[in-house]
Structures are given as C-alpha cells and as structure tokens.
Simulated scan of single mutants.
Amino acid sequence: MNKKVRQVAALALYLSVLFSLYLVPLGMYSPCIKEAGTLGPAPTLIGHRGAPMLAPENTMMSFEKAVEAGGEGLETDVTISYDGVPFLMHDFTLKRTTDVAEVFPNRTHLDASMFTWAELQQLNAGNWFLSRDPFGTVSSLSEPDCSRAQNQSVPTLAQFLEVAARSSRLVLFDLHRPPYGHPYHQSYINTTLQVVQAHINSSQVLWLPSEDRELVHAVDPELQQTSGEKASIHELTVGHITRLNLHYSTMSQQQFRKYQSVNVSTNLYVISQPWLYTLAWCSGAQSVTTNSIHILSSINKPLFLMTQEEYSLMWILTDAVSALLIIAVFIFHWWRERGLPWSGSRQTHENGAYSKFRTELSDVWSISSVSVRPDLRSAPSSPSKPHLPTITEE
C-alpha cells in the first residue's frame, strides 16, 4: 500500500509540473508577437565608434567603413587635449588603443586630455587592433585593409565631422570633461561647440552632453538635444529633448509609443546581434548603435514575427504532440510490465541478464556446498602412493 501511495504521489507531481510547462509558453510575451501590418520601419544604424569589427575603433578608417556599410549615423567619444584640441578617444587613458607605452612609457596612466595635440599625433592608433583582434575579425580583412589599419592615428573631432558632413550622416558623441587643473576644465563645452558649428550642419548632430544643456540650446537651437536617461514627458519637453539614447535592456514597446507620441525618438545601444536587432525593431526603436553595422545592414525583415493566433496555435500543437508521445510511452511500459510472466507474488524474468545471473548464482551455491569427508582430513598419506581424498556432497 505504501508503494502504491508513493507511485501515485510521484505521478501527480510529474503531471503537475508537466501541465505547468504546457501553460508557460501561452503566457509569454514578445514584442515580435503582434498583429499583421503593425510592424514599423527598421531602426536606422549608428556605427559604434565607427565599424570596430572592420577597423580600429575611433579612427578615420573605422568611420569610413561604417559609411560604406550603410550606416546612417556615427557615434564617438570626444576629449579635449591639453592645448584645447577636441579629439576622439573613448577611454580615459591611452593605454588600450594606442602605443603610448612605447612613445611615452612614463605617462601611460595619465588622463588622455593631459597630452598636447602634438604629442597625440605621435601615437599609433591601429597596431593594437591587429595584434589583439578584439572581435576575431582581423583574419577576414584584406591585405590593403590590414596595411591601412596599421597606420591609423588619433583623429580630431573636426576630421570626424567632415566625414559625417560629406556623407550626410548623423553624429552622436559623448563628451568627457577634462580633470580638475586642466586649462579647459571649465570651457570644454564651448570649445567643442565651436568646432561642431564650424564643420557640420547642427541639425545632423545628436547633442548628448547634459551639462549646460539650456545654454547650448540657446546658442544653437538646431542641435538635436539627446538625453541618456528616461524622463517624464514634461521633463523632456522642458529640456528640449528630441531623442533618447538608452541601453537596450530598457526596451519597452509601451514607452517607445509614449515617447513617439510627443515626437521623441529612441536610440538603443549597443546592439550587435541580429536577434537583438529584431527585438528592437519589433519594439519600435527608431535607431540602434551597433558594432556590426556590416551585418545588420543586410537584414531586411525581422528574424521572427507572428500574430498572437499563430503563436498560440504553434504551442497548442506542440503541447498536443508532446502529450500524445508521453501517453504512448506510459502505455508501452504498462503493456511491457503486464506482458511479463509471474510466479506467485514474485516476478521472474527467465530471459536475458536476469536468467544468466540466476544460473551463475546457482553454480556458486553448488560449489560452496561441496566438502571433504571428515575421516580423510587428518589421515596421513603414503609417500610412495599419494592418497586422493574422496569428494562427497553433503
């Protein structure tokens, strides 16, 4: 009876877990489960520091490769040199993407903005890409591209803006404030703004720096004010925000619709996988920042897209087939158990391994029952004619 109770309890637990698994997919949500005809246009692509899989990041070659691959925007990071030249550098130091350890070995830990522009021009900004191969793509580059990458240098903001202006691309950049004691610690925004206005149409620039935003908007209202944080509609309106630059983990179809209703578009970063780009597309993002602009530019439709009815039907059919297979397995085992011979209350399977085991076990017991006759155990044996003991079976 106890065995029966345990079997019933195990079966009930198994069926409850199985039933729960059957119901889980029906309650799942995906932005790519939507009604036909409601999918918006594909998000535009903004090259993250250019095309960093095809060329060293934040170099002229990288941005030109991003334009060639079909990017509609270029993203970078701007720092001010010690003598007031805005240049492109993501890290606070120069160690990772230049040969500063060879040219200025005693200054590797200095902030990048503590170098003059003349010193920065002495650095190579491409060799590290070929030696470290950060994306595992160097082997796919042509020999001319490898040679070109090897000779890249640190570019100025002006050079970067000229590439964007010639190709009519959008520009998105973050701006690093120089450390305390730097000559341009207070005036770095004005210095950067002057370079922007001198080299590109302001309407092409997504202005991301949040400091002195009101002043910047007053000086140049054509700039597309861009915020790196979510905010209420009122705050966005007051701050003249026209675009949000958010991490892709903040994807929300409802929020995107809310922002779009007041003409605030959304850019998501950094999206480099096709499946993640598909989710951003289905969610309604207007643009994405990507490392793989050459890959995403070839995607002309989402990888997966279906209506709620199609999704439900797919899982219902899957659950039904799974249930039939499980029932068939149970029936097979029940039939197999019922088909075995029984002897009294103990089941004996006379074929296969069990039969062999029982035969060997019987032989062992037969050998253990053999003994030597007691009267012969201590009898002396003749040296000339050995006496063989008689074996008897007790």
Results as ranks from 00 to 15, higher is better:
residue 35 E to A: 12
residue 35 E to P: 01
residue 35 E to Y: 04
residue 37 G to L: 03
residue 37 G to W: 01
residue 37 G to C: 00
residue 38 T to W: 03
residue 38 T to N: 02
residue 39 L to T: 00
residue 39 L to S: 00
residue 39 L to N: 02
residue 39 L to D: 03
residue 40 G to K: 08
residue 40 G to H: 05
residue 40 G to P: 06
residue 40 G to Q: 08
residue 40 G to C: 01
residue 40 G to V: 03
residue 41 P to G: 04
residue 41 P to W: 03
residue 42 A to W: 04
residue 43 P to T: 01
residue 45 L to T: 01
residue 46 I to N: 08
residue 46 I to Y: 08
residue 46 I to V: 07
residue 47 G to T: 02
residue 48 H to V: 06
residue 48 H to E: 06
residue 49 R to F: 10
residue 49 R to E: 09
residue 50 G to S: 12
residue 50 G to H: 09
residue 51 A to L: 08
residue 51 A to I: 10
residue 51 A to G: 06
residue 53 M to K: 15
residue 53 M to E: 14
residue 53 M to F: 10
residue 55 A to I: 03
residue 55 A to R: 07
residue 55 A to S: 09
residue 57 E to D: 00
residue 57 E to N: 00
residue 58 N to G: 09
residue 58 N to E: 11
residue 58 N to C: 06
residue 59 T to Q: 11
residue 59 T to N: 11
residue 59 T to H: 12
residue 60 M to D: 03
residue 60 M to E: 02
residue 60 M to W: 00
residue 61 M to A: 11
residue 61 M to W: 09
residue 61 M to D: 07
residue 62 S to N: 04
residue 62 S to I: 03
residue 63 F to G: 04
residue 64 E to C: 06
residue 64 E to G: 09
residue 65 K to A: 15
residue 65 K to G: 07
residue 66 A to H: 15
residue 66 A to G: 12
residue 66 A to Q: 12
residue 66 A to I: 15
residue 67 V to W: 04
residue 67 V to M: 01
residue 69 A to I: 12
residue 69 A to C: 12
residue 70 G to L: 12
residue 70 G to H: 09
residue 70 G to K: 10
residue 71 G to Q: 04
residue 71 G to R: 08
residue 72 E to C: 10
residue 72 E to A: 10
residue 72 E to G: 15
residue 73 G to A: 13
residue 73 G to R: 11
residue 73 G to C: 13
residue 74 L to V: 05
residue 74 L to N: 05
residue 75 E to A: 13
residue 76 T to C: 15
residue 77 D to E: 09
residue 77 D to T: 11
residue 78 V to M: 11
residue 79 T to F: 09
residue 79 T to G: 04
residue 80 I to D: 04
residue 81 S to R: 12
residue 81 S to N: 11
residue 82 Y to K: 14
residue 82 Y to G: 05
residue 84 G to V: 05
residue 86 P to K: 13
residue 86 P to L: 10
residue 86 P to Y: 15
residue 87 F to H: 13
residue 88 L to F: 08
residue 88 L to V: 07
residue 88 L to W: 03
residue 89 M to N: 14
residue 90 H to T: 14
residue 90 H to I: 14
residue 91 D to W: 01
residue 91 D to F: 02
residue 92 F to K: 15
residue 93 T to F: 00
residue 93 T to G: 02
residue 93 T to Y: 01
residue 93 T to I: 00
residue 94 L to H: 02
residue 95 K to A: 02
residue 95 K to L: 03
residue 96 R to F: 01
residue 97 T to F: 00
residue 97 T to Y: 01
residue 98 T to K: 00
residue 98 T to W: 02
residue 100 V to H: 05
residue 100 V to D: 01
residue 101 A to L: 09
residue 101 A to I: 11
residue 102 E to S: 14
residue 102 E to P: 01
residue 103 V to R: 08
residue 103 V to A: 08
residue 103 V to S: 11
